[in-house]
Amino acid sequence: MPLASTRSEFLEVFKELTPVLLVGGVLQLLTGLLLKSIFLLATTPGILVMLPALMNLRGALEAEFAARLGTAYHIGAFGKGSQLLKHFASNDLKASIAMTAILSVYAGVVSFAAATAMGVGASLYMFVLIAFVSSMAGTIIVSSLSVAMVKLSIRRRLDPDNVTIPVMTAFSDAVLALVVFIIVMIFWRVLA
């Protein structure tokens, strides 16, 4: 590989990647702030066992949903803007909701089993409820935002693939942490 091309590639990658990483990092610090609040409230024993799995689930499903919307746009499945909503209500959203329902209950049960094995006094009902409600709320909120983001990208003549996935995966963590925080706060007030 010629030295000049190596050097220009080095600078190009460094200059393009670093700012994007920092913006994403700041967004995810907000997620961290919410997690820290949940941790400091400490009303639901063992909830930290479940959070990485819920975030992984939310981020992966959102990336998949956004990628499908992007692909549908590229193959011309959308046509005019009104058809976008039709597309949104069809297979991709149904699949996303079905996966969220199945996998959030699975995440709740597996996390409960792990927490119980570790000797944490967790409640299966609480784990499954928090996993299901926060994931479903996250799916509805973040998927709607994804559709809006795709529409905006198309209007601004940007490729939705370059915009939707990185932005929405960063948002999905924050939305999930916010919903979990709200649920924990509600339980905390009910139990207090």
């Binding site: 066992v49 959070l51 799995a53 992984n56 992966a60 996966m99 996998l103 995440a107 597996v110 944490v120």
Partner: peptide, 17 residues
């Protein structure tokens, strides 16, 4: 997803520990 979620629970268990 079933496999990756189960592995993520290990990460959560490590945080709890």
């Amino acid at each position: 997803f079933l496999v990756t979620l189960a592995l993520s629970v290990f990460a959560g268990a490590f945080i709890e520990r």
